[in-house]
């Protein structure tokens, strides 16, 4: 492999990873609290889940395209890419958070209340720890998907490993395509393994 290709792979991998990381932090910060909120407000559930569902059903390339003309969050570049990736990552985290918390044994919840826990103590000491494994599973699925989807960000100037892939398609050069696809797949596998480990550690209790 020529050294300039190797350093480009390293640079674009880092860019890719940054894109994924920022998107995931924002998605988690939005979806986990929203998921908890809809366990308290059953009436909001279909709307919130519905919104996340719709976002997921839009084909990814189209979603990136749709965002280009949108003011503030749209346009060409990284910001738009992050917005699209966040919208994509919401559903699995949101759904798993909700399912995880609703799945806490009612007897455990009732005994927590009967012991005199406040609403906040119930959430932090009982519901979140017991739902943690489920929430982490959602984050893991969302992360792995986002790593793949982030390759499309290059189509709207978001950078990352997709740059190789689009360049390879345009110039019918399989080496370029592989230079993007292989590192992306490796990152996805590593993330999957790492988050899987965290998930298992969490369930040890």
């Amino acid at each position: 492999m020529n050294p300039s290709l190797a350093s480009e792979i390293a640079a674009l991998s880092l860019e890719h990873l940054t894109l994924v990381l920022i998107s995931m932090i924002i998605a988690i910060a939005m979806a986990v609290p929203a998921g908890i909120l809809i366990t308290r407000r059953a009436r909001w559930r279909p709307w919130v889940i519905g919104f996340a569902n719709v976002m997921q059903t839009i084909p990814s390339l189209a979603l990136f395209g749709f965002l280009i003309p949108v003011p503030l969050i749209g346009g060409i570049g990284k910001r738009t890419a992050v917005v699209a990736l966040v919208l994509y990552a919401l559903l699995p985290i949101l759904r798993n958070t909700m399912v995880g918390i609703l799945g806490v044994d009612p007897a455990v919840r009732e005994s927590a209340v009967a012991m005199g826990m406040t609403g906040r103590q119930l959430l932090w000491r009982v519901e979140i720890p017991l739902a943690a494994r489920m929430i982490l599973a959602g984050i893991r699925v969302a992360t792995v998907t986002t790593i793949g989807t982030a390759t499309i960000a290059a189509a709207i100037g978001g950078g990352g490993l997709g740059v190789f892939i689009f360049r390879g398609i345009a110039s019918v050069d399989s080496t370029q395509i592989l230079a993007g696809a292989v590192p992306a797949a490796c990152i996805a596998l590593l993330a999957d393994g790492g988050l899987g480990w965290v998930e298992r550690r969490w369930s040890a209790g």
Binding site: A107, V108, S111, M115, G116, L130
Partner: peptide, 16 residues
Amino acid sequence: KRRIGYVIQEIGLFPH
């Protein structure tokens, strides 16, 4: 609630 002890079936213990 904290002044009153409450015992339910064994499933009420916190599993974690």
